[in-house]
Simulated scan of single mutants.
Amino acid sequence: MLPVIFCVFIVVVAIQFIYYVLIFGKLAFVKPKQSNPKKIPVSVIVCAKNEAENVAKYIPLLAEQNYPDFEIVLIDDASFDNTLEIFEEFEKQYHNVRLVKVANNEAFWGNKKFALTLGIKAARKEYLLFTDADCYPTSKNWITEMSSNFTMQKTIVLGYGAYEKVPNSFLNKIIRFETLLAATQYFSWARIGKPFMGVGRNLAYKREEFFKVDGYRDHLKIRSGDDDLFINQVAYKKNTTVCYTPDSFTYSRPKTTFSAWFRQKRRHVSTASHYKASDKFQLGLFYASQLSFFVLPVILLIFQYQWIAVTAMIGFRYLFTWLVLGFAAGKLKEKDVMIWYPIIELVVIFTQLNIFITNLFSKPVHWK
Rank of each mutant, 00 (worst) to 15 (best):
C7M: 13
R317E: 14
R124I: 13
A329P: 11
G284V: 04
S169C: 09
D76T: 00
M313G: 03
L301V: 04
I10N: 10
V44Y: 01
K112I: 15
N172H: 06
V100D: 04
N104C: 12
V324N: 04
I299C: 09
Y163E: 10
A329T: 09
K92C: 05
I314E: 05
R317L: 12
W189Y: 15
V42R: 00
F230H: 09
N141A: 08
R263H: 10
F294V: 06
A14F: 15
R207W: 14
E164A: 13
L180H: 02
L99G: 04
G225E: 03
L220I: 14
W340V: 08
F170A: 09
A312H: 07
H268V: 12
H274I: 05
A122S: 14
V30A: 15
G110P: 03
W109Y: 14
T358H: 12
V30Y: 09
F177I: 10
F210L: 09
H219I: 13
L158A: 08
M146C: 02
L116M: 08
V13C: 13
E178P: 08
F150D: 02
N66T: 05
F249Q: 05
G198M: 05
T144W: 05
P68L: 00
V11R: 07
Y244Q: 06
G225N: 02
E178C: 09
I143E: 01
K221I: 11
Q93E: 15
G225L: 01
S148G: 06
L158V: 11
E91Y: 10
V213T: 12
G225Q: 01
Y160G: 01
L116D: 02
I156D: 06
V365D: 08
W261V: 06
G330K: 06
E208V: 05
T155R: 15
T250M: 01
A78K: 14
V348I: 13
E178K: 09
V295M: 07
I40M: 03
D134Y: 00
F29A: 02
H219A: 00
L171F: 12
L180Y: 03
L301T: 07
E334Y: 12
L61G: 04
V324I: 10
Y136N: 03
W261N: 07
E209F: 10
P3L: 09
T256A: 07
F327K: 14
L61P: 03
D279R: 05
V348E: 13
A288D: 06
I120Q: 02
V166K: 15
N232A: 07
F286G: 15
F9N: 02
I349Y: 11
W142M: 07
I10A: 11
F108G: 04
G198L: 04
Q34S: 11
L325V: 08
E178R: 12
C47R: 00
Y186V: 02
L118E: 14
D81I: 00
V55A: 00
P32M: 03
Y19C: 11
D81S: 00
K194D: 12
F303I: 08
I343H: 09
D279F: 07
V97S: 01
E164F: 04
M152C: 11
